[in-house]
Simulated assay, not measured.
Amino acid sequence: MSAPVQTALVGYGYAGKTFHAPLIRAATGLELTTVVSSRPAEVHADLPGVTVCDFETALADPVIELMVVATPNDLHAPQAIAALKAGKHVVIDKPFALTTAEAEAVIAAAKAANRLATVFHNRRWDGDFLTVKHLIETGALGEISLFISRFDRFRPALRNRWREQALPGSGLWYDLGAHLVDQAICLFGTPDAITLDLAQQREGSVVDDYFHATLFYGARRVRLQASALTPAPGPRFEIHGRLGSYVKYGLDTQEEGLKAGQPVGGEGWGTDRDGVLTPVSGADPLPPLAQPTLPGRYPAFYKGMAQAIHGTGPLPVPAEEALSVMRLLDLGRRSAETGRTLAL
């Protein structure tokens, strides 16, 4: 059996602490040995026994094979490229980078170093998304005409964090938009065109806290939406096809489980409420049915990463797929700036 991959987590903010640290520690084939952070007391309180150091020290450690970059978005590409040049494999928290050009530079650095680079698009393993994917792939809904994916929250108060400051890569589009765009591409591929509307709706906000994107796939429309001012959230998914509709309320439960310290992959992990399936018979909708939600599987990402490094499986998210997401984030931003629908 292969020795565990010695892993360094770069950044111990919300993403590093809540998502990456517990998922890495739960993954067979990985060992979290090092955290790059300016808050060693907090790290040691949570993770006794790990080494806390600065980025350059972690880069120079020959034992570390994998570096997970969970720092502010403007550091993703430069830190990933530095890690790859130092001979490390790399996981980058979403978004991949600030621009398509930066993402392409990361991929080039990975190829030059003969190392693996991937992006933490963990919401591919949301239970409700896995359910949606199954319904579409099995043809249960028929040809999809309208796909709506929402990420609604009610957070009226501004918070003192980099995501809400006027910094490169801040705002909801690069945060939640990265997830929703990735899911849409997983289901339908690259769209023909995109229209994006961005807004700063909260008083004093300096970054987009609302977006509404329309992706065009021939006659099919895919609408992606997120807001920080929605007291009564709409459905997380609303999908309409020739053979039926599927509606699901509520966000995937795994993030709340991680925040609460629930054992990763333990009993009840990733369970969620049912959705509603309304099938069609001929020209008539039938009575709605409860559609069980498949269990969420966030642990699959780092299990897949360990297998990829050991040469026993593919990358959980190929870098070229993450690059497609980055291209659409870039193009969406230009659409919002120009007020035009832009073709890919």
Results as ranks from 00 to 15, higher is better:
249 Y>V: 02
212 H>D: 12
191 P>Y: 04
280 V>N: 10
291 Q>T: 03
269 W>K: 02
314 P>H: 03
297 R>P: 00
261 G>N: 09
287 P>M: 05
312 T>G: 04
294 L>G: 04
267 E>L: 10
279 P>I: 05
302 Y>I: 09
228 A>E: 14
191 P>K: 07
201 Q>K: 15
204 G>S: 11
311 G>Y: 04
267 E>R: 09
193 A>D: 06
211 F>L: 02
276 V>M: 12
241 G>N: 12
251 L>W: 01
302 Y>T: 07
238 E>I: 03
279 P>V: 01
311 G>A: 09
228 A>Y: 12
247 V>T: 15
218 G>P: 06
235 P>L: 08
304 G>P: 00
268 G>S: 07
222 V>P: 08
188 F>G: 06
274 D>W: 07
262 Q>A: 13
300 A>F: 03
256 E>P: 00
237 F>G: 02
236 R>Y: 12
293 T>H: 02
283 A>D: 14
274 D>E: 12
233 P>T: 12
301 F>Y: 13
292 P>L: 04
282 G>T: 02
243 L>M: 12
222 V>E: 10
283 A>C: 05
219 A>S: 15
244 G>P: 11
311 G>E: 06
201 Q>Y: 09
302 Y>H: 14
270 G>S: 05
188 F>P: 05
221 R>S: 14
244 G>A: 13
273 R>S: 14
242 R>L: 15
247 V>N: 06
295 P>D: 03
216 F>E: 09
294 L>S: 02
307 Q>I: 00
253 T>M: 05
282 G>P: 11
288 P>Q: 06
277 L>W: 07
275 G>S: 10
213 A>R: 01
201 Q>S: 07
198 L>N: 00
291 Q>G: 04
259 K>E: 10
314 P>Y: 02
221 R>C: 07
266 G>T: 02
203 E>C: 07
300 A>R: 06
276 V>F: 06
197 D>W: 02
298 Y>C: 01
291 Q>M: 14
221 R>H: 09
310 H>A: 15
232 A>H: 15
232 A>E: 15
270 G>H: 03
264 V>R: 03
242 R>E: 15
197 D>R: 09
312 T>K: 04
271 T>D: 06
266 G>S: 14
287 P>Y: 13
